[in-house]
């Protein structure tokens, strides 16, 4: 009997939850704010859905209701992607080690 492809996706999902669990526990608490901003940025990978929605077309000429929703979703996801990664970068640049004394 053939296995439903859904089962494969479910397996990926469950295993990813475990990966997330272990990876996130190893994140140092001082970086929890960047963790939130970066998870926010990567969850905007939902833009792949927005791209399909933007280009979905029956006849290739008219902009449909679905296309318009797609464009709005692309805009929202783009705010998140650029905003999320850049603000994370800005924060991470601030984390500096103790300056070593010059005479040593």
């Amino acid at each position: 009997m053939e296995i439903d492809p859904f089962i494969f996706r479910l397996s990926i999902f469950i295993l990813s939850i475990f990966i997330g669990y272990f990876v996130v526990w190893s994140v140092t608490p001082s970086l929890h704010t960047p963790l939130m901003s970066v998870t926010n940025a990567i969850s905007s990978v939902i833009i792949v859905g927005a791209i399909i929605a933007s280009f979905s077309s029956l006849d290739g000429s008219n902009i449909s209701f679905s296309n318009m929703l797609g464009f709005v979703a692309v805009t929202l996801a783009a705010i998140n992607i650029f905003g999320g990664f850049l603000v994370t970068q800005r924060m991470l640049q601030m984390y500096k080690k103790k300056e070593k004394k010059k005479n040593k």
Binding site: S16, M36, T39, S43, V48
Partner: peptide, 18 residues
């Protein structure tokens, strides 16, 4: 899951557990 897209499923699980 709806779009049958692996990148979204993995990312969703990571962010959800985080």
């Amino acid at each position: 899951f709806t779009l049958e897209n692996t990148a979204l499923i993995i990312t969703g699980a990571l962010v959800g557990s985080s």
